[in-house]
Design a protein around this nucleic acid. Structure first.
Length: 871
RNA sequence: GGGGGCAUAGCUCAGCUGGUUAGAGCGCUUGCUUGACAUGCAAGAGGUCGAUGGUUCGAGUCCAUUUGUUCCCACCA
């Protein structure tokens, strides 16, 4: 083995082996319990970022853990066509070549899109492999694959036939840049400093005017009424009369409607049903005409008169000028308000009435809410269930049609002769009603999330009744960020319930965002994104993986930093070198099974620590507390195994006693092997590479059984007793540092203790690790001679003659501080034990523990006091 | 307007259903070429767990109020 951890020398090689050996493949095995994870398919818009890296690492860790535990683990990978996002990118790319969608045509455009897909999907797969993802590549799915298309059509037609999909004219969010409608969740709001224009609308045939206030004056051309509150005494009498729209000089009625808030503004609202969702509702209530005044690209249409063809904002400017000239403009107030933007291109969306396809949500939402209420699905952490309820309870119908080309085309055909609307799973060649061949498919495609919603079952063969579907569905855990709960998680839940009659997964593990060092979102515009591949190249995939899991709590955002990865790289190096030490010592030796060797106290201690780590890691993993699991592994490996056990075992390894040497090497190998298995789900590469160098190892570690807690090896009492020995070592080291005594200088130790035999049995360890010549057991402090520093420990009192290094005053002060500490502890424990409530109500074990502690501290105080006296 | 999150060591954060003397990484101080590792070892300094009140035998942990910060949802034109 090399002297330092060098991930490049083995990561690619190991991944290739894993893949070729087929151990990522999940094949139905009825003797095993399935464990299914569906990878959230990354968009093919670009490459993976740190957020993906964390998401994938979490999934891989869980899947590897379950696989080692004996489950038939399926992690199904894929990529998403990301309809609008990809289309925007391709349009951008074409623009650079001087091309447009129109110039290349639908077929030409789709050809380009597929080329794009081939390039980027491939890149994503390569990145996933670099990370070590153990997914079943034989099942790699793209959301526009034939099997997904079949599922989409099946679902669309079923919902259509159940009247849960309908087509209608509604106010939707229109992106004038992407020239498509988008759903409510695709709109991002941000506060902007706009203006409030107050405009006079004269009441027909009078000199009195109503003052309306608007943030979008250009929609005035589409005003078909003015509303006042029916209870508003100021305006009540005018209801039923008309006002004259300025500029166009057209009369529109004054209607009474609750929508007009008497408290807000002037209490008069202009009603533009075609360009505002609330106005649309008012329009329905009062049977007002719906007049659309804008084109799809955000320019004004012919109804805007001389402003026809002008951009909406240009028109706004010019129109305000004109109103001013006409004397209709009363005032302009600054007004901060939330403005919606397209989540893909950032353009301000325009609420516009448009004929679109919708999914009726009412009936679908209810069971989806109950699935979570009834704990058929659990969110981790739980608080995200609230966010989910809140959204589901107020969900509006889902606009699913997009005026785009890249995506699943809506499976509806229109007959040009009889006007029939035909929704079918198979392409329609002739009208089933009149036989006409003059049929054309709907031009629009579906919202990309429509196919994503079916991901948990479309990937397993739905609508066919496949064996995979029966075995692997529903999935076990879905791992994703909180930012797509509405987009995706919610929609998978109601889709699974509606089409499979079962929830799509049991748990939803929610993680946060990976931010930059300063806590900012990583984004292209800020240029603060970090490429996972570069980090892998520099520090290794395992270092990155560990750093992404360490210290994260479910649902919380986390910060990425190079120094964190570096410290994880150091941990990898530590594991590497500890292993190198073990393996070097195995050479030429016969490594016996643990059951055949005699265990020393230190051996029992490390084995006990291992058992505790196995137990705690398993518990944490089962609760998806990956950060905690990592911490436990880290502490065990570094502190317990490397810093203590390996140092403890060195003198044994170099001793003449063959039996002892055999024991030590057996324990080293046993503990290391188990630790590697424990660590493997998080850091698969380095653990496997080392594992292959262990004596008696065969094949890859990833197919080995995950360690199980073994109560027979828990050695609780032995471990506790051994901590007493460690206390002696720590005490000697501390004294040396305090007195500026070089660690290499060997000191004599004297002890007053009742554990002579146990200490003798561990004498070698103490001498080596503490840097001491010998230990003498004495019966009183005087025997240690003058100038001895005293350390009062649980196992006994330690005297270290330090000769001229001891400063009596300093020693007194030191003992005084210790006395204060111990006295404080006594007061604390005493207070607890004198509390009748504690004695009667707290668990007995706790009370006993506290009493033992008190006794220990009292004894220590006595000893310290004696020592102070003798000084 | 509604709903969350966060506030713990100089910095970044853990701390699960309330129960050892509140932890880690990085940074800092001091000392170490101890035969796996200086990507290392040892010893240390550093915290009244944002504030106030409450529940409890016991609160960093639960409840209420409050301050700061941040996010999501809705939206009054």
């Amino acid at each position: 083995m090399e002297k330092t951890y060098n991930p490049k020398s083995f990561e690619d090689k190991l991944y290739k082996e894993w893949e070729e050996s087929g151990c990522f493949k999940a094949v139905r095995d009825d003797d095993k319990v399935p464990f299914t994870v569906m990878m959230p398919p990354p968009n093919i818009t670009g490459q993976l970022h740190m957020g993906h890296a964390m998401d994938e690492t979490m999934q891989d860790t869980i899947v590897r853990f379950k696989r080692m535990q004996g489950y038939c683990a399926l992690w199904l990978p894929g990529t998403d066509h990301a309809s609008i996002a990809t289309e925007v990118k391709i349009v951008e790319q074409m623009k650079k070549e001087g091309l447009s969608k129109e110039s290349v045509g639908r077929d030409g455009f789709l050809k380009r899109a597929w080329e794009w897909k081939d390039k980027y999907a491939g890149r994503i797969v390569d990145q996933l492999k670099k990370l070590g993802s153990s997914c079943d590549w034989s099942r790699l799915t793209f959301t526009m694959d034939e099997k997904c298309s079949r599922a989409v059509r099946e679902v669309f037609v079923n919902l259509y036939n159940k009247k849960l999909i309908y087509r209608g004219s509604r106010i939707i969010n229109w992106c004038p840049c992407c020239k498509t409608g988008i759903s409510d969740v695709e709109v991002e709001y941000s506060e902007e400093n706009g203006s409030f224009w107050h405009i006079k609308y004269f009441v027909e045939g009078t000199d009195t005017a109503l003052e309306v206030a608007t943030t979008r004056p250009e929609t005035m051309f589409g005003d078909t009424a003015v509303a006042v509150n029916p209870n508003d005494t100021r305006y009540k009498h005018l209801i039923g009369k008309n006002v004259i729209l300025p500029v166009v000089n057209k009369p529109v009625p004054i209607v009474g409607d609750e929508h007009a808030d008497m408290e807000f503004g002037t209490g008069v609202v202009k009603i533009t049903p075609a360009h505002d969702p609330n106005d649309f509702e008012v329009g329905l209530r009062h049977s007002l005409p719906v007049v659309r005044v804008m084109n799809d690209d955000g320019t004004m249409n012919s109804l805007a008169g001389k402003y026809e063809g002008m951009d909406r904002y240009e028109c706004r400017k010019k129109l305000v000028e004109e109103l001013k000239t006409l004397g209709n403009l009363v005032s302009i107030e600054p007004h901060a308000h939330n403005v919606g933007h397209c989540y893909r291109c950032g353009t301000t969306v325009e609420p516009i009435v448009s004929k679109q396809w919708f999914v009726k949500m009412e009936g679908l939402a209810r069971p989806a809410i109950h699935a979570v209420l009834d704990k058929k699905i659990s969110f981790v952490p739980e608080r995200f269930a609230k966010i989910y309820y809140n959204w589901m309870e107020n969900v509006k119908d889902w606009c699913i049609s997009r005026q785009l080309w890249w995506g699943h085309r809506i499976p509806v055909w229109y007959c040009g002769d009889c006007g029939a609307e035909i929704c079918a799973k198979e392409d329609v060649q002739a009208c089933p009603h009149c036989g006409s061949k003059n049929v054309a498919q709907d031009e629009d495609v579906l919202d990309t999330w429509f196919s994503s919603a079916l991901w948990p079952f479309s990937t397993l063969g739905y609508p066919d009744d496949t064996s995979d579907l029966e075995y692997f569905y529903p999935g076990d855990v879905l791992v994703t960020g909180y930012d797509i709960i509405f987009f995706w998680v919610a929609r998978m839940i109601f889709s699974g319930l509606e089409h499979m009659r079962k929830v799509p997964f049991r748990d939803v593990l929610i993680h946060g965002l990976v931010r930059d060092e300063k806590g900012r979102k990583m984004s292209k515009s800020l240029g603060n994104g970090v490429d996972p591949l570069e980090i892998i190249d520099k520090y290794g995939a395992d270092s990155l993986r560990f750093s992404l899991l360490q210290g994260v709590a479910p649902g919380n955002d986390t910060r990425y930093s190079d120094t964190k990865v570096e410290s994880c790289r150091n941990f990898m190096n530590k594991i590497w070198n500890a292993s190198r030490f073990v393996i070097m010592n195995c050479e030429g030796r016969n490594v016996k099974p643990l059951s055949e060797v005699k265990l020393l106290p230190a051996d029992k201690w490390i084995i006990a620590k291992l058992q505790a780590a196995v137990r705690d890691v398993t518990l944490a993993m089962n609760k998806f507390e990956l950060g905690i699991a990592c911490q436990i592994m880290y502490d065990f490996m570094w502190s317990d195994f490397c810093d203590w056990y390996i140092e403890l075992v060195k003198p044994v390894l170099y001793s003449e006693d063959v039996a002892k040497r055999d024991g030590a090497i057996s324990v080293l190998v046993f503990v290391l092997e188990n630790a590697l298995k424990l660590l493997h789900p998080v850091i698969p590469f380095v653990t496997d590479e080392i594992y292959r160098n262990l004596p008696n190892a065969s094949g890859t570690i990833m197919t080995k059984e995950f360690p199980r807690y073994n109560a027979k090896l828990a050695y609780k009492k032995d471990a506790q007793a051994f901590e007493g020995i460690m206390d002696v070592i720590k005490a000697v080291r501390a004294v040396k540092t305090e007195l500026d005594c070089p660690p290499s200088k060997k000191v004599n130790l004297y002890m007053v203790t009742e554990s002579k035999r146990f200490i003798s049995a561990n004498e070698e360890s103490i001498l080596k690790l503490a840097g001491a010549k010998d230990i003498k057991f004495i019966s009183s402090a005087e025997e240690a001679g003058e100038n001895a520093v005293t350390k009062v420990l649980a196992i006994g009192t330690l005297y270290i003659p330090m000769g001229e290094l001891v400063d009596l005053e300093k020693e007194k002060a030191r003992l005084q501080t210790e006395l204060e500490k111990v006295t404080a502890e006594i007061a604390r424990a005493d207070g607890k034990l004198n509390n009748t409530g504690f004695i009667s109500k707290a668990p007995k074990k706790l009370v006993d523990d506290e009493r033992a502690k008190l006794n220990k501290f009292i004894a220590m105080r006595e000893k310290i006091l004696n020592q102070l006296k003798s000084l």
